[in-house]
Computed example of a mutant assay.
Amino acid sequence: MGKCSNNLVGILNFVTTLLSIPIIIAGIWLSKQAGTECERWLEKPVIAVGVFLLVVSIAGLIGACYRVTWLLWVYLLVMFLLIVLLFAFTVFAFVVTNKGAGEALSGKGYREYRLGDYSNWLQKRVDGSTWDRISSCLQAGKLCSRFGDQYVHDTVDKFYSEELSPLQSGCCKPSNECGFTYKGPTNWVRAGNATHSNPDCNAWNNDPNMLCYNCQSCKAGMLENIKTDWKKVAIVNVVFLIFLIIVYSIGCCAFRNNRMENHYPKY
């Protein structure tokens, strides 16, 4: 069993080593191809993950295959910390994404989103300068330009029946309670001198560079996207955790085998 566990750890880490190389290459490619700040921020985490996997996998590979006990011990320590951190992040992700949901509107195919419905921790992630960077990324990515082109021929009834994404609903059109008159997907007419309790109604502007990028609903749409993505990541993390625990258990067997061979060398 001991020898088998060493071989299994070696094989698993050899595969992980091979997988880390395209991850690093992808990170470097992103740094060369990034045209906006939205794309540029991805490069460093991707490269860091790739390098981390490469170093840890090489340590596990050498420790298991060449019976280097101290290196295998370091590998198991890192694996244990990774399991703890991943477990903590998974629980945290489920907790902070537990609140918040789109509001269904009568006669509308889309939902609308309110910033106050989401957890305080998530709300703080879209404050101040952070939101300035996010909104500039959304504009650079032509979110609402594509939205306008996609629905440009819609009549008002057809537009109201569309199933819009959270970002499209929150950033590219005014809130339903503003009561604006539809002229086009990104062109709305205010109802005279009507006053509204919703601050987004005053923030709306038909200027393609403004629209509702500074609206609370736009931030809420972004949080809805984050919430959905984090829930998917959390589910994947549960599966990955099970895999890590199995690998860690096999690694412990290999470590015990190495120690026994060092204490009772074969002549």
Rank of each mutant, 00 (worst) to 15 (best):
Ser5Glu: 07
Ile11Trp: 04
Pro22Met: 07
Ile23Asp: 01
Lys32Leu: 11
Gln33Tyr: 01
Ala34Arg: 12
Glu37Lys: 11
Glu37Met: 09
Glu39Cys: 03
Arg40Asp: 13
Trp41Met: 09
Glu43Ser: 09
Pro45Lys: 03
Val46Tyr: 03
Ile58Phe: 08
Gly63Cys: 07
Cys65Ile: 13
Thr69Gly: 11
Thr69Phe: 06
Thr69Arg: 13
Leu71Ala: 15
Leu76Phe: 09
Phe80Glu: 04
Leu85Asp: 01
Leu86His: 05
Val91Glu: 03
Val91Ser: 00
Ala93Pro: 02
Val95Ala: 12
Thr97Phe: 00
Lys99Glu: 12
Lys99Leu: 07
Leu105Phe: 03
Arg111Lys: 15
Arg111Ser: 13
Tyr113Arg: 06
Tyr118Arg: 06
Gln123Tyr: 04
Arg125Trp: 10
Gly128Leu: 09
Ile134Pro: 04
Ser136Asp: 15
Cys144Gly: 08
Gly148Glu: 14
Asp149Pro: 04
Gln150Cys: 08
Val152Gln: 06
Asp157Glu: 12
Lys158Asn: 09
Glu163Pro: 00
Leu164Ala: 13
Ser165Met: 10
Ser169Asn: 05
Cys171His: 00
Cys172Arg: 06
Lys173Leu: 10
Cys178Trp: 07
Cys178Pro: 07
Tyr182Cys: 12
Lys183Leu: 08
Thr186Val: 11
Asn187Gln: 15
Trp188Val: 06
Val189Trp: 03
Arg190Asp: 14
Ala191Leu: 02
His196Leu: 02
Pro199Ile: 11
Pro199Val: 12
Cys201Ile: 05
Asn202Thr: 12
Asn206Pro: 05
Asp207Asn: 15
Cys218Gln: 06
Ala220Asn: 10
Met222His: 15
Lys227Cys: 06
Asp229Met: 11
Lys232Thr: 14
Ala234Met: 13
Asn237Val: 01
Val238Met: 06
Val239Gln: 02
Val239Trp: 06
Ile242Leu: 12
Ile242Gln: 04
Phe243Trp: 12
Ile245Ser: 14
Ile245Cys: 14
Val247Ser: 11
Val247Leu: 08
Ala254Ser: 13
Phe255Met: 13
Asn257Arg: 03
Arg259Ile: 00
Met260His: 11
Pro265Thr: 11
Pro265Gln: 09
Pro265His: 08
Lys266Leu: 06
Lys266Trp: 00
Tyr267Trp: 04
